[in-house]
Amino acid sequence: MNQPVGEKWILKLYIAGMTPTARRALANLQAICEEHMAGSYSLEIIDLVESPALEDGEQIFAVPTLVRHLPPPLRKIIGDFSDTEKVLVGLDVKPISRS
């Protein structure tokens, strides 16, 4: 995935095989990204089954895990992203809603 300059969000999605959960997570994530960050994000998908030699890189243990490299700080969002609210908080798309 090429990353044009000026991207606000640089994201990496880790999965372990294209399981139903992974598929669901990807669909949920793409929907959220397109709705809230269209044109200003890059999303790389890394399958741990295919390229497991990550060593101590991102230290992924749960899947799916979305790692937000930009904007800082580094943040990990774990799950199938069915909880849209939490994903948005995690991506800093909108401020934490205080109830």
Binding site: P52, F61, I77
Partner: peptide, 17 residues
């Protein structure tokens, strides 16, 4: 890193390693 949970997950990442 701050971990946020947004839905169900598995430990397949750990298993893959």
């Amino acid at each position: 890193a701050e971990i946020i949970e947004a839905g169900s997950f598995s430990l397949d990442g750990l298993i893959a390693h």
